[in-house]
Amino acid sequence: MIYEVFRQERKGQAFAHAGSVEAPNEEFAEAYAREQYGRRGESTALWVAPRDAVHEIDDFADELRKNYHRVDGYPLKEKLGKARELAAKGPRGLSAGAG
């Protein structure tokens, strides 16, 4: 059986996937997880779960590219890039007012 191990580095922080261990049962999985992800003081807590218990979802419908739905909001990178390009061109660009 494969068990997935998640570790928390400091109290209050989110758990992050650390790796997996192969073990015949939960007890062994806990012992192995402890040895591999906890014995050097690198974790304050571990979550150990059978791989089957973790449901993976990887199909997300975003046909119309409604990127305003995303947590990062409108992507500003492109706009900023353009603005910088303009600014670099000189007085007729964005920095015109400064001169």
């Binding site: 192969e22 012992a31 192995y32 040895e35 591999q36 014995r39």
Partner: peptide
């Protein structure tokens, strides 16, 4: 006998 045990027993 298995990798995980190797780590545990060595430790």
């Amino acid at each position: 006998p298995l990798l995980e045990e190797d780590v545990a027993f060595s430790s």
